[in-house]
C-alpha cells in the first residue's frame, strides 16, 4: 500500500491516495467525454478538404469516433481542422476563427501545406499554420488519406486523455498575438519558414 501512496504525488500537495484516485476518476470522466465527442470545425480550403469530406462520408465515417456533429460555427466547436493550404490572405481569417472558439480547443493541421507550406514555397503561402495558431496534431500527406486523418484524430484523443484538470500550470492559456501582431518572435517565424530540402534549389528560373 505504501509504495502506491508515494508514487501518487499530486502537483506538489501531500500524498493522498483517495484524493488522487478521485482526481483520476474526474480526469477520466471529463477527458473521455471530451475526447469521444469532439465537434470538429472544418476549416477546409483546398485538396485536403476533399479528403476531409471523404472522411466524413459513408466509407470512412468519422462519426464512429464521436465526430458526428460538424460545427460550421467556431463558437460551437472543439477542434479546428485546417484542411488545406493557407495563403497569407486567409491568415487573419483562421486566426479570428481560432480566437472565436471556446476553451478547451485543439487544432489539427491536415496535410503538408497546412503543416509546412508544402510545395508552395512562394510569395503567397503561409509556411505552416503554426506561425499563426498553436497546433496539436500534424497529419502529413499531400493530401493525407482518410485513414491518416483518422489516425491524427485518434492521436488527438490520446493527447486529450493525457491531460489533467488538476495541474496548476495554466494548461491551455489563450495564446494572443503580441504587440507586434505575431504569435511567435519574428526570428522564429523566419527560421520555421526557411526553405528546406529540394526547394532550396528552386530559386533559379531558367
Amino acid at each position: 500500500m505504501k509504495h502506491v501512496i508515494e508514487t501518487k504525488t499530486v502537483s506538489g500537495q501531500s500524498p493522498n491516495y483517495l484524493l488522487a484516485k478521485f482526481q483520476d476518476l474526474v480526469d477520466w470522466a471529463v477527458n473521455s467525454s471530451r475526447a469521444n465527442s469532439l465537434w470538429p470545425m472544418p476549416f477546409g480550403t483546398a485538396c485536403c478538404a476533399i479528403e476531409f469530406m471523404a472522411t466524413a462520408a459513408s466509407r470512412y465515417d468519422f462519426a464512429r469516433f464521436g465526430m458526428e456533429r460538424q460545427a460550421f460555427s467556431p463558437r460551437q466547436a472543439d477542434v479546428l481542422i485546417c484542411a488545406g493550404r493557407l495563403p497569407f490572405k486567409l491568415a487573419p481569417v483562421i486566426r479570428r476563427i481560432y480566437d472565436q472558439m471556446p476553451q478547451p480547443k485543439w487544432v489539427i493541421s491536415m496535410g503538408a501545406c497546412a503543416s509546412t507550406g508544402g510545395i508552395f514555397d512562394n510569395y503567397a503561402m503561409v509556411q505552416g499554420i503554426d506561425t499563426i495558431v498553436p497546433v496539436d496534431v500534424y497529419v502529413p500527406g499531400c493530401p493525407p488519406r482518410p485513414e491518416g486523418l483518422l489516425y491524427g484524430v485518434l492521436l488527438l484523443h490520446k493527447k486529450i486523455k493525457g491531460e489533467s484538470l488538476f495541474d496548476h500550470v495554466p494548461r491551455r492559456e489563450e495564446q494572443p498575438l503580441d504587440d507586434r501582431g505575431l504569435r511567435l518572435p519574428p526570428g522564429e517565424i523566419d527560421e520555421i519558414s526557411e526553405p528546406f530540402g529540394n526547394s532550396v534549389h528552386q530559386f533559379r528560373s531558367a
Binding site: 480550403t45 483546398a46 495563403p87 486567409l90 508552395f120 510569395y123 503567397a124 528552386q202 530559386f203
Partner: peptide, 15 residues
C-alpha cells in the same frame, strides 16, 4: 477572391 491564391503560375516559371 484570392483567399486560396497559391502562386501556381509563378511557381511554374521555376519548374
Amino acid at each position: 477572391l484570392g483567399y486560396l491564391h497559391s502562386g501556381f503560375e509563378k511557381l511554374g516559371e521555376y519548374r
